[in-house]
Simulated assay, not measured.
Amino acid sequence: MYDLEIAGWRVPEPIISVALIALAIVIALAAHALFVRLLRRITRNTSFLADDVLFRRSLRPMRWILVAIALTLIRPALDLSPTADAIWKQAAGLIVPLLIGWLAISVIRASTRIVEIRSDITVEDNLKARRRRTRSMILSRIAVIIVGFITICLMLLSIPGVRNIGVTLMASAGLVGLAVGAAAQPALKNLIAGVQMAFTEPIRIEDAVIVAGEWGWIEEIKLTYVVVKVWDERRLIVPVSKFLEEPFQNWTRESAGLLGSVFLYLDPSADVARLRAYFEDMVVKEPLFDGRGKALQVTDVSAQAIEIRMLATAANSPKTFDLRCAIREKMLAFIRDEMPAAFPRTRAELGQAEWKRDAEPIRDPVRPPRSAPQEEGIGGPSGEGG
């Protein structure tokens, strides 16, 4: 250690060490400030948002990494006791992996944010954007878990006691792995299903689905579960494995546009041609109709009614639902006002005996008709015998 005297007074070595540490920290912070100013000037001159996001996310980790580098460089100039030197090395073994892991996680999250910015899901045809967002979200969460796991392992390996018992732990790792795997089977199952979902893509962010009897949108995709926003603002939490093992409906698998159907049950005597003409004219004027297709057909016939199916297309699932409601309301109003006889009516067929009885004229229950023949000796008008 260098001796330092000021005005004949010898400065103690601990004060020199503290001063050197403080000087190293100040230099590191100054270098970081200069580096930040330079990068900010560069990012302002570019039209890309990616560099701005990456710059903001990595700002804080880089500051402390520069401080750690500066302290590492001045380490040989410090006169430390064996105890202090051991503490210094132990702290460096814990802090350096932590800072590197922090920076790596910040870069991963910045990349996810960049994908979100470049993938606009507010447009009508947002299939590719939702696909990129879903894959980026799932893979980034997996990457964060892996980086966190590696960081913790590196920190633990810097502790001599943990490193020394590592061989013993590795010898029993097989039995421990079996026990942990049996206990955490549901969690591991959903975790593996989450990784599989990132590549197979049965669902994506903002997909319209029907799962567990509920209709809603995919709001979040976690590693082990999916959050479905139900149409009435409820949230349905569904395990990831359910989307890989059980059937469900995905209304936006290939595109956002949908074909909506409306069914009406009318009397067999209804004028289908007149209904079709009104339907086609009404749908064309409907703002929710996107013009891709429309049709009105008789799809079934029974003894009591005919089934009429009306089809019309809309840009997405919410508009399709509203379009179906509008078609149903307007068709019912038209039939009620213009064709009330088209509503189903109940018909009954009478038997032959009942038909003959109903066809006879109504007679006086007391006096029989005059033209009715009377048998001799059998009740006449008075009901007496001959």
Rank of each mutant, 00 (worst) to 15 (best):
G93P: 04
V366C: 05
A171T: 12
F248C: 08
L264C: 03
A359S: 13
I221K: 00
F48L: 12
V227Q: 01
G377A: 04
E280A: 05
I159P: 04
I25G: 00
A193W: 01
V11Q: 03
V195C: 08
Y278T: 07
E233Y: 01
V228W: 07
D281I: 01
A183L: 15
L54S: 07
E124R: 02
W215L: 08
S255I: 07
K128T: 00
F199H: 10
F279D: 04
N250F: 08
A353L: 14
A50G: 06
P82M: 06
L323I: 07
F279I: 10
E376S: 03
R132A: 03
I105N: 11
R130C: 07
L323E: 00
S382F: 06
N126W: 00
M155R: 09
F248A: 10
G177L: 15
I6Y: 00
T122G: 07
R163Q: 09
I16K: 14
T299G: 02
G181H: 11
E349R: 14
G291H: 06
A273F: 02
P76H: 01
A270V: 08
V211D: 01
R367I: 10
F48C: 06
L296F: 08
F263R: 14
A30H: 12
G386D: 13
R276S: 09
D79R: 12
I108T: 04
R163N: 07
V115W: 03
Q352E: 14
S158M: 09
Y278R: 14
R276E: 08
A277N: 13
K294Q: 14
L296D: 00
P368W: 14
P369G: 10
S317K: 12
W88I: 03
A326L: 09
S17Y: 08
R163I: 03
I42D: 08
T346Q: 12
R130V: 01
V298F: 00
A270D: 01
V176H: 09
W355K: 10
A30L: 14
E354Q: 12
W355C: 05
F149G: 07
S172I: 15
V283S: 02
A22Q: 13
E349T: 15
P97Q: 07
D364Q: 09
A187W: 15
R163H: 09
V26M: 11
Q196I: 12
R235L: 09
R367T: 11
L244S: 08
L23T: 14
S255A: 13
A33V: 04
M170W: 13
